[in-house]
């Protein structure tokens, strides 16, 4: 059985939501906070509902709608979302009011939408889907957990398509706190040219990347996903061995491209570079986080890049990548602090 990517909806710091990036190329962003370029949400939800929705839920609704439209799918047979931090705007809103008003006179609205599963739930509600619905919340492998669940569902044979997504938002509060925890470089330090200069911390990012996966190819197909795996509390030798095994199992003698989640943090990038080195892919490795920033589900954005590169010759140039020819196989490797790692292997159709 093959798993095809038949539709993508991608809200990111680049002009991906309207696909203008394929015409005009990438946005050069500076600073330590990469916000999404958002669509007019009234195209996706009616005005009354929009007012009650936080930004991350709107992003989820819009990007899932776009993915389904592209795949000409009216109703998915499963909805699975990965989000490392969930609906922070509503969470912090309820939390702040609870503290300020000393646990009194609280409106339930923010609480209701603060639950991590409310993105997947709102998508189900909008499309009236009574099907399998789940949400994964495990740090930098939240998206891959959703992907793995979807691939398992497709393999089990009870469904032949699934809508999956990786989604996280930046809020002022989350940025301030994560900045205090040393997650980000200083704003003035970061320019498009020096994004990957080794330092301490990375750049805050956010995004919503949704995919329609299906067992049959269609005219909208981007690529196929051959395999995806996550590894936790493992050393780099195990990752290297698993990457080699994954390639061998899929009869790939020479991988065309390694797409890695390097983020400009010296400690993180040392791990990335070691892996690229160990599987002899130094010369054929590209990065993607200078386009989207660092966040728990950034690898979902990475998968949109891989899918676009495998589909269109033009993508590489417009995304600013120097590639001699269109790749046929791409391995995405992401990790954070050496704890959770993910490998996802894609091929052109």
């Amino acid at each position: 059985m093959s798993v095809y990517i038949n539709g993508i909806g991608n809200i990111s710091a680049q002009h991906t939501v309207d696909k203008c990036i394929l015409k005009n190329g990438i946005e050069n962003i500076s600073g330590n906070r990469y916000h999404c370029i958002e669509p007019d949400y009234s195209q996706f939800v009616d005005g009354k509902q929009i007012r009650r929705m936080s930004r991350v839920i709107k992003m989820g609704i819009a990007s899932s709608t776009l993915a389904m439209r592209e795949a000409s799918l009216l109703s998915p047979q499963a909805i699975i979302v990965g989000t490392s931090l969930g609906c922070m705007e509503d969470t912090f809103s309820f939390l702040s009011k609870m503290v300020q008003y000393n646990e009194e006179m609280l409106s339930p609205t923010a609480f209701i939408h603060s639950t991590h599963n409310s993105i997947a739930a709102q998508i189900a509600l909008l499309f009236q889907c009574q099907v399998y619905n789940s949400t994964y919340v495990h740090r930098n492998i939240s998206f891959e957990s959703a992907l793995l669940d979807a691939m398992l569902l497709l393999e089990e044979g009870n469904v032949d398509n699934a809508l999956i997504g990786g989604i996280d938002e930046i809020t002022n509060t989350s940025f301030t706190i994560m900045n205090r925890l040393g997650h980000f470089k200083e704003s003035k330090q970061v320019t498009p040219e020096n994004f990957y200069h080794p330092g301490k911390g990375s750049v805050a990012g956010e995004g919503a990347a949704f995919f329609v996966l299906a067992t049959t190819q269609s005219k909208s197909t981007y690529a196929k996903i051959l395999s995806s795996q996550t590894f936790s509390f493992c050393d780099s030798q195990e990752i290297v061995a698993s990457a080699k095994l994954m390639l061998a199992e899929n009869h790939i003698d020479q991988l065309d491209l390694l797409l890695q989640g390097n983020n400009g943090d010296a400690d993180d990038d040392a791990i990335f570079n070691e892996i690229a080195d160990s599987i002899q892919m130094n010369e054929r490795t590209l990065y993607f986080k200078h386009l989207c920033g660092e966040y728990g589900t950034a690898s979902a954005f990475g998968m949109t890049i891989a899918a676009e590169l495998l589909k269109n010759e033009i993508t590489a140039k417009k995304f600013g990548y120097a590639l001699a020819e269109k790749p046929n196989t791409i391995l995405i490797y992401n990790q954070s602090k050496g704890i959770h790692h993910s490998l996802t292997l894609l091929a052109a159709c």
Partner: peptide, 9 residues
């Protein structure tokens, strides 16, 4: 160690 994840529904 090995496969680890968290669900929130």
């Amino acid at each position: 160690k090995g496969f680890i994840t968290t669900i929130s529904t």
